[in-house]
Design a protein around this nucleic acid. Structure first.
Length: 505
RNA sequence: GGUCCGUUCGUCUAGGGGUUAGGACGCAUGGUUUUCAUCCAUGUAACAGGGGUUCGAAUCCCCUACGGACUACCA
């Protein structure tokens, strides 16, 4: 009997992985690693109608990019495979048969149409139709068939489903690791379908069998599964298996208003809801991803980790190892959390500052290359290290540093008005002459010389520095003017000064 | 409608019988930076409502309101 922790993330390959799902995966990962356990990825593809091409690869890639790779799963076969439910068909069949044989499940021949009709009738009376203990004997199923009649219909290849025979009026005491004890009366349960007419199990069936066979010790999943917890516990009981521990995670809600975070909300606020960009193979619709949006995986992980969990300290920034070290299921919240784009941005800014300089340089060089600029890595490195503190994304670099590479194409109107007065052109002409005579154009010497020049001319610093900045940058922004001038060089500095003087004269 | 879950600053949250109800994001103000951003400092703002229990309730209990999930031959 093994006691090591085994958890699973069990998404359905019906489309891109939502960040709510990614957080579920993250918490599973953290819990597994914290306990030196195993993080399993299981693909729940028992619904053939909803299968979407590429979704499985997307899930795997998302996990990898986010830095929470799985230990066992598709492509990483362990001793509990296969890890795709469509490949486990035969396994489930044996287990349902077991349930039928011991009277905990039965065949039902009711057609979709006949059930639909019953549902509509009930609704017309303001009631809700449920296939269960109250009415199962009046419906078309094996409970009222002799074994010969049943066999006859099965032999005739009549379509059927297999339903769980839920026990009437019994109190079920459930325990959730996050929410504590929950008491449910089984009389509110219905006879859920375990096996569909297409020969594949439903989620409920497959999930119980797989979790048992894969020796899953803790089921950590979204809150939307809480209502089916009684069914799942009842199934474990019917099989005589010991159920794993359960933990249901709160939802991630939209920033403003109410309800779950959706793709629409993301589009509206300009934040992605998916880790990676996704293009739907059927509809062709595209959805933005964090990776392509320039977010670092650390940003997403840190944000998601703190959305519904904290370690009771005032710490805000966590490396994945720190999360693993401090994560506790008991400290996961019960209530849903609204996603805050502002805080996301704050984390991103932080992680951009922490990012490896060489990595940022490499990324920026890609952008510069697209702009057909010939650059030297050392120079780009110098530029990136001085402007990165102003950036949130690598994509901000160009706007913040274009003047290190090319002359400004225009002069900001407001800044021009403020910095360039009527006498400025004359002054700057004289100043340019002075600059052209300088031998040592290093940042240090430049600063010293310029300051001396200004003082000896009995001028205010702003009188010279502001037009100089405007000439070199095109606006009143950016790093030290001396740094910029030294970087672009004496010749280019003078050229830009002349351009500005001509422009404003 | 039914079942279940939830509710502390605008947002993420700490606190679980006696606290000036703490922190972070945001926002505002000031400082630094002769620019801008960063950075730093200060400020802003909350226990959903009503009943109990108790000397004392944000904290325990009940009710109400509000929010959410589920209610498929989907997961």
């Amino acid at each position: 009997m093994s006691t090591s922790v085994r958890v699973r993330f069990a998404p359905s390959p019906t489309g891109p992985l939502h960040i709510g799902g990614l957080r579920t995966a993250l918490y599973n990962y953290l819990f597994a690693k914290k306990h030196q356990g195993t993080f399993v990825l299981r693909i729940e593809d028992t619904d053939q109608n909803r299968f979407v091409e590429g979704a499985e690869d997307y899930i795997v890639e998302s996990l990898n990019w986010s830095g929470i790779p799985y230990d066992e799963g598709p492509g990483k076969e362990g001793e509990f495979g296969p890890y795709k439910q469509s490949l486990r068909k035969d396994i489930y069949k044996n287990y349902v048969d077991e349930l039928i044989n011991n009277g905990r499940a039965y065949y039902a021949f009711d057609t979709t149409e006949s059930l639909q009709k019953l549902r509509e009738e009930a609704e017309a009376n303001g009631e809700k139709f449920a296939y269960g203990p109250q009415n199962r004997l009046s419906l078309d199923n094996s409970l009222k068939l002799s074994s010969e009649d049943l066999q006859k219909r099965l032999d005739a290849n009549e379509a059927y489903v297999i339903r769980f025979k839920t026990s009437p009026a019994q109190k079920l005491f459930l325990k959730d690791e996050i929410r504590g004890h929950i008491e449910v009366d089984t009389s509110v349960l219905d006879d859920k379908i375990l096996f569909k007419a297409d020969g594949l199990p439903t989620y409920h069936m497959a999930n119980i069998v797989d979790d048992h066979l894969m020796e899953i010790t803790h089921v950590i999943r979204g809150e939307e599964w809480l209502p089916s917890l009684p069914l799942h516990v009842a199934l474990y009981e019917a099989f005589g298996w010991e159920p794993p521990k359960f933990a249901h995670l709160p939802l991630i809600l939209k920033p403003n208003g109410k309800g779950k975070l959706s793709k629409r909300d993301g589009d509206k606020l300009g934040i992605p809801v998916f880790p990676l960009e996704w293009k739907d193979p059927k509809t062709g619709s595209e959805a933005a991803g964090y990776r392509e949006g320039g977010y670092l995986p650390e940003t997403l992980i840190n944000t998601l980790a703190l959305l519904g969990w904290n370690d009771a300290t005032e710490k805000e920034f966590y490396k994945i190892e720190e999360l693993i070290d401090r994560f506790e299921l008991k400290r996961v919240h019960k209530s849903g959390a609204k996603f805050d784009p502002e805080k996301l941005k704050w984390f991103q800014q932080h992680y951009l500052q922490e990012a490896d300089l060489d990595f940022l340089v490499k990324e920026y060089e890609e952008i510069l290359k697209e702009k057909n600029l010939q650059t030297e890595t050392e120079y780009v490195k110098e530029v990136v290290s001085t402007i990165r503190e102003r950036a949130v994304f690598v994509d901000d670099f160009w706007e913040l540093s274009s003047f290190y590479f090319v002359a400004p194409s225009e002069f900001n109107k407001k800044s021009s008005k403020k910095a360039w007065k009527t006498t400025t052109s004359e002054l700057m002409t004289e100043f340019a002459e002075f600059l052209s005579g300088l031998k040592d154009f290093s940042e240090e010497n430049l600063e010293k010389e310029i300051k001396n020049w200004i003082t000896s001319h009995e001028l205010g610093f702003g009188k010279v520095m502001q037009p100089l900045r405007l000439s070199l940058v095109g606006a009143m922004q950016g790093p030290s003017v001396f740094h910029i001038a030294t970087s672009i060089g004496q010749e280019e500095t003078l050229k830009r000064l002349k351009t500005a003087i001509n422009h404003f004269s």
